[in-house]
Nucleic acid binder design. Structure first.
Length: 224
DNA sequence: AATATAATCAACCGCAGCTAC
DNA sequence: AGTAGCTGCGGTTGATTATAT
């Protein structure tokens, strides 16, 4: 309790990153790999807090990131997943490996939200806005129902992607493969119950479900 | 050309979960 | 079992850029 926020420390630089800082961070990560962010500022001499370093890496410097120009397929997938999972951007981003959660969140807030509002109430009510159940047993039953619902919906999404395939075979295949992994995870989780995994190895799909449960526990009228 | 307004996106902040002790 | 520290997530802000007047 009472731990001061890391970014309140004196001498910690804020604001936009310079190319030099980027270079230092990239070099460090290339040598040591991502992780142990706490050590990054001291080891590199960067006057940034660990959070800032991690964010810069994951949202900007990480290799394989695609920026801007969301395709129709990506847009549809985001809308679909947002309706299923609510505003769990990290979970949604796990279905779009080339996009960051921040990017998806920004795109949703600046484009899609408005687009859907303009198009009437066509979008399904986000999962996170559904009314909460009152007991733990009910949560678990609802969770199972949600898992089944998500599986069904994702199958539908896969069908949609199959229709799109002729135009974008590689992207669609990648997304489908990712879907399959998640579905397999869902099955494993169902079989293993509450078995823990290390933070790094934890499937984001599961993180999404956990967040969903957390919201339900947190407030009876959980909204986003 | 100058100014106002809107749109975009990088980055910050606070909170919660997880692990180690 | 309790606590501290680290990490990741989601909401929000603010600077910058684009567009309209």
């Amino acid at each position: 309790m009472g731990r001061p926020p890391c970014c309140d420390k004196e001498g910690v630089k804020k604001g936009p990153w310079t190319p030099e800082e980027d270079l230092v961070l990239v070099s460090y990560v290339q040598e040591h790999g991502p992780g142990n962010w706490r050590a990054v500022p001291t080891r590199t001499g960067l006057m940034r807090c660990s959070k800032s370093c991690r964010l810069r890496w994951t949202n900007y410097l990480r290799p394989g990131i695609k920026r801007g120009n969301f395709t129709d397929q990506e847009e549809k997938l985001i809308v679909h997943l947002q309706a299923l999972l609510g505003n769990r951007w990290a979970a949604i981003a796990s279905y779009l490996p080339e996009r960051t959660d921040n990017d998806i969140k920004n795109y949703w807030n600046t484009h899609l939200k408005r687009k859907l509002q303009a198009g009437g109430d066509a979008a399904a009510k986000p999962a996170a806005q559904r009314p909460a159940s009152s007991s733990k047993g009910q949560w678990e039953r609802r969770l199972q129902t949600d898992i089944n619902m998500a599986r069904r919906a994702l199958r539908e999404a896969l069908t949609t992607l199959d229709d799109i395939k002729p135009q974008q075979p590689d992207a669609a295949d990648g997304v489908r493969a990712h879907h399959r992994e998640h579905l397999a995870d869902a099955r494993r989780v169902g079989q293993q119950g509450s078995q823990r995994r290390g933070r790094g190895g934890q499937p984001l799909w599961l993180v999404g479900v956990r967040g969903f449960l957390r919201q339900r526990r947190g407030s009876p009228c959980a909204g986003v």
